[in-house]
Design a protein around this nucleic acid. Structure first.
Length: 536
RNA sequence: UGGGGCGUCGACAAGUGGUCUAAGUCACGGGAUUUUGGAUCCCGCAUUCGGAGGUUCGAAUCCUCCCGCCCCAGCCA
């Protein structure tokens, strides 16, 4: 088995491409075959080297290695040209002088047949001569094309004398000015597959109509004939995977570049903190079929959490800090408690976490008048500070505006170090915290789905993209407090901020000024109860 | 009668004549457990396969008709 992943270098790869990559490379891996990376670079007006570099990086990052060296359709331009001459000699192709408009008008419609070009029956020698002169640059763009001579009455429009070559006086990123005629996809793809010895040419559903043409070309040429097989492209809820729209959002500033952590691009997912493993697992679980379907983005997030739960170090961070003073703890005293790094992985060991009289807790973890099922902190209530001790809230301090600025609590010395109370009373709530004098300031960026609408690609449900955007897709928190050791977090580090979610270091981070991206939240049963009104 | 596809649980998706009163995963609901309302563990979740007929001892799987959805009229890929 020999497969290939054939991107056009005209944009960045996204999660939909990942499905194709995993499929093609996965097939080769599973059946002991090979997989090529082939750039389908037949349109120099749209393609650029920067995209090739980005695609190479993304495929490698996803964990796949292609047969060296990578392939380019442009490497086959000579062969393709010779093959075109063979077609002409066989009387299966001709040079057409009609304009693009004329060709469109004579193609017919979906229900009516087209009409044949007046140039359709030119003698072979004339076609050969004209085609050669096209190659030499004697004609302007649009003046002539090479067409296959098939059937202008075919029900399949692709068979109504499709254009094989057009004149494009544009320099090519790889062949420079060597060519001014470039092959169309239909003329290039199958033959490139054939040259590379591809056995299974896997592509998306919209090419199903092209298969008869794919077969026609190879049959006429008598060349090695790979088999084209189609599958449904990925559609993800709350996500747009159209290259056109992605480019637009980058250009109009809706997002901050191709690698904005909200983008479904591989580079965006990478910056967001996704792991290659989780993306591969996702591609494995969604399966491959021919029916158009939409996968819930929750499945992608599940695959991520599943992996991060096993691998990410747990650490404490407070996103929206509220100061809490433990009045019966000696002023100026500091001690360290042992904290487990990952309950899912014993080998991750323990670390020391500094504790003192004043700590920050999450503002949302306190309610002045909490509902019954809220088992976090409230006046007179007891709660556990993870790894440290049990505290009771004695007093709520407010400013003149009536805002809560500080909590006064007392701790139970018996529970110091995380011990359970001797009297056997159960403490339901556990909070993460950060010691005030030891805290490191951090910027935390909270990300959510770019689109609040489930099917942003649906023009009926979403006539205007803007109105379907999630206004809360990015929330920047500049006043987060994190454990001291996180001040030294490195790019590529991933953590679970206890009870808050999984976070990764953003490239914007600088020494002493950490920046964290929320990769994905933790499952939030309480949040779900609140939004369903069952929290009372 | 343009051509090509697709329709199995809320979302994916196995299954292509008997082992199907239909696998698995996510989601969802319930319970246990828990120093993360996380994780983990149990339990539940399509008598039905777009619909209607038919063939057959037997159909999601074969046949007929019907319905719905997607793709194709770039000198894009």
């Amino acid at each position: 088995m020999h497969t290939r992943f054939p991107p056009e270098p005209n944009g960045f790869l996204h999660i939909g491409h990942a499905k194709s990559i995993c499929l093609n490379f996965g097939l080769a891996r599973e059946f002991g075959g090979k997989c090529n990376l082939r750039y389908d670079d037949t349109n120099p007006t749209k393609e650029e080297q920067v995209y090739i570099d980005a695609i190479n990086e993304d495929v490698r990052w996803l964990g796949f290695e292609w047969e060296q060296p990578e392939c380019y359709t442009s490497d086959y331009f000579d062969r393709l040209y010779e093959w075109a001459r063979q077609l002409i000699r066989q009387g299966d192709a001709y040079v057409d002088d009609q304009t693009a408009d004329e060709i469109r008008e004579t193609r017919g419609t979906l229900k009516e047949p087209g009409t044949e070009s007046p140039y359709r029956n030119r003698p072979v020698e004339e076609n050969l001569d004209l085609f050669e002169r096209m190659k030499k640059g004697e004609f302007d763009e649009g003046k002539k094309v090479l067409r296959a001579k098939i059937d202008m009455a075919s029900g399949n429009l692709n068979l109504r004398d499709p254009v094989l070559y057009r004149i494009l006086k544009a320099p090519h990123p790889r062949t420079g000015n060597a060519w001014c005629i470039y092959p169309m996809y239909d003329w290039a793809h199958g033959q490139s597959d054939s040259i590379e010895g591809i056995t299974h040419s896997v592509c998306t559903l919209e090419f199903e109509d092209h298969r008869p043409l794919y077969d026609w070309c190879l049959d006429k040429l008598g060349a090695f004939h790979p088999q084209q097989i189609e599958f449904a492209r990925l559609q993800l809820s709350h996500t747009l995977l159209s290259k056109r729209v992605l480019i637009q959002m980058v250009k109009d500033g809706t997002v901050n570049g191709w690698d904005d952590p909200r983008m479904p691009t591989i580079s965006g997912l990478r910056r967001r903190g996704y792991t290659p493993e989780s993306i591969r697992e996702f591609c494995e679980r969604i399966g491959v079929a021919k029916s158009n379907s939409t996968v819930e983005i929750g499945l992608l997030e599940h695959c991520l959490r599943e992996e991060l739960n096993k691998t990410a170090r747990r650490v404490m961070a407070v996103l929206n800090p509220l100061k809490l003073v433990i009045t019966n703890y000696p002023e100026g005293q500091t001690e360290e408690f042992d904290a487990e790094n990952n309950p899912e992985d014993e080998s991750a060991g323990f670390r020391k976490v500094p504790f003192s009289r004043e700590v920050y807790i999450e503002r949302d973890d306190f309610m002045e008048d909490p509902p019954k099922k809220f088992f976090r902190l409230g006046p007179g209530r007891e709660v556990r500070l993870k790894h440290a001790c049990i505290i009771r809230c004695d007093e709520v301090i407010k400013n003149d505006a009536g805002e809560i600025v500080e909590l006064h609590c007392s701790y139970d010395p018996e529970t110091r170090g995380g011990a359970n109370p001797a009297d056997g009373r159960k403490i339901k709530g556990t909070l993460q915290w950060v010691s005030v004098p030891h805290a490191v300031d951090a910027e935390v960026r909270l990300y959510d789905h770019l689109f609040s609408h489930e099917t942003p690609w649906d023009s009926k449900a979403c006539p205007e993209l803007q109105s379907c955007l999630n206004p809360e897709s990015l929330t920047v928190l500049k006043n987060a407090k994190v454990e001291p050791e996180l001040g030294a977090a490195q790019l590529g580090d991933r953590f679970q901020f206890l009870r808050m979610g999984y976070f990764s270091v953003d490239p914007d981070a600088k020494p002493g000024a950490p920046v964290f991206n929320r990769t994905v939240t933790l499952k939030d049963t309480w949040g779900k109860m609140v939004s369903k009104g069952k929290a009372g």
